[in-house]
Design a protein around this nucleic acid. Sequence first.
DNA 1: TGGTATAACATGGTATTTCGTGGGAATCAA
DNA 2: TTGATTCCCACGAAATACCATGTTATACCA
Lengths: 157, 157
Amino acid sequence: MRKSFLFLDTIINKVDAKGRVSLPSDYRAIVKDLSTEIVCYRSLTSPCIEGCTEELLEKLATDIENSTDFFSEDQDDLTNLIFGDAKRFSFDSTGRIVLTEKLLAHAEIKDNAVFVGKGRKFQIWSEENWAKEEARIREKVKQSRPSLKLKENDNDK
Amino acid sequence: MRKSFLFLDTIINKVDAKGRVSLPSDYRAIVKDLSTEIVCYRSLTSPCIEGCTEELLEKLATDIENSTDFFSEDQDDLTNLIFGDAKRFSFDSTGRIVLTEKLLAHAEIKDNAVFVGKGRKFQIWSEENWAKEEARIREKVKQSRPSLKLKENDNDK
DNA sequence: TGGTATAACATGGTATTTCGTGGGAATCAA
DNA sequence: TTGATTCCCACGAAATACCATGTTATACCA
């Protein structure tokens, strides 16, 4: 029983000729502890693969059912896209999953896959695209510190 | 189990060739009492490593989930930056963690690591950078004493 | 108060395990 | 049968758990 489950860190693993990739061991631990599965789909906004626990997708489905005003119609459409695109992935005894051609192509992944933790979700990038993306975000944060207020009550500065 | 905790004090420990450092025993006590883990990431604003309990990051993840919608761009960028950089650290039977090259490089730490308590978080500095930073802060406080008084009143009980 | 015994801690070194990865066998589908 | 997919074994590198020692801080007693 695990009290917290966060996808963290940035980990680079190899993709072999068969499309196999080791899911980072930390991520596997989460899946095992929660007795759930990993679900992946093409990111709607970036050239990367997005993944989360099946549990989270269920929660998303429930939220949509219950709160019609919170989720706009647009977002409802988006969720349809996701559920339609999402696929369940289970790993073998050595901890590997086999990504599909569709996903790999969307993320432009060739040899190496970069797993990026996002808390409740994670993403899988090609090295090149992730380098660009990380640079973009860090630059953006430099410009607008305010968005970081969420992080917690910083003393001053 | 304790309901409140504070990372306090300034402690210097050695970093060996493998990147191992003793986590200050006070900090370890907090981790044990809360049954949580330590999470570290590169400071967004300073050349230092920042650390907190995984529990705190958990709370952050929940806050983000609730405050913005599932597909928000800001949420997307923020979570990538924070959770993608954060790494879980558990200490061995002698109380040491192994810092990564990425973190050590960012903080410019070579031989010695300076742990600085910040309440809910703490920071790890190189001796040189911390000396500069401390001088800067003390100088700043001299200029604007009033703001400090406010803080002390807050702490009164 | 002072001195000694005891425990806690930081740190160096070593052994063990885990994890990622390549290759091949087995299974399945067409 | 042939090609593709899944399962299993094996190896090397890297992470981490364990053991040992010196030093410092703490507790205890005279």
